[in-house]
Amino acid sequence: MISVQAEDFDQAQEYRALRDSDTGTGAIVTFTGLVRDQGDRAGVTGLYLEHYPGMTEQVIQGLVAEAARRWNIQRARVIHRVGHLTLSDQIVFVGVCSAHREDAFAACAFLMDALKTSAPFWKKEITDQGEHWVEQKTSDIERAEAWAPVTPPAAPDPASGSGS
C-alpha cells in the first residue's frame, strides 16, 4: 500500500499491520527518514516537499511491483509526506515483511534507493539563513544504479536541451 500525504504517520501502527499479515512472516524491516539538522547546508530547521501528484503514486507503485518481482516479500508499505515539515519530523516510511531477512532487507533498501532517484519529489531546505532546493547526490544515483543488473532499464535520459 502506498500513501503520499501531508499528515504524519504512526510507525507503531504500520509495524503492527506488517506483523499481522501472515504466520509465514519471519522478518520485518522498516526504514524511517527524518528531517535532520544537517542537510545540503547546516542549521536546517525544516523542509518543504513538493511532488507531482498522480505521477508520484504511479512511480512508487511501479517500484513496489519491481521489488515484489525481485524478492520474495509478503507485503510492502510506502508512505511519503509532502508539504511543510520541521526538524525531526518523519518524512518517509518503507516497511517490508518476508519469510527471510535477506529479502526484507534488500527490498526495503532497494525501495529507498529507488524512491530517492526516481519518484518525483523535490526537497527545499529551510535554514536560519534562508531556503534552497536540495541538489541530487551522485552517491544516490550510484546506489540506485547498483541495483540495476537485475532491473529492466527504466532510467530516464535527462531531456537536456544542450544540442544534439
Binding site: G33, L49, H51, Y52, M55, H80, I91, V92, M112, L115, K116, T117, S118, A119, P120, F121, W122, K123, W133, V134, E135, Q136, P158, A159
Partner: peptide
Amino acid sequence: VAFFPPVTGG
C-alpha cells in the same frame, strides 16, 4: 508534458 529538476525525495 512536465519538466523538472532531478528528484530529491526520500
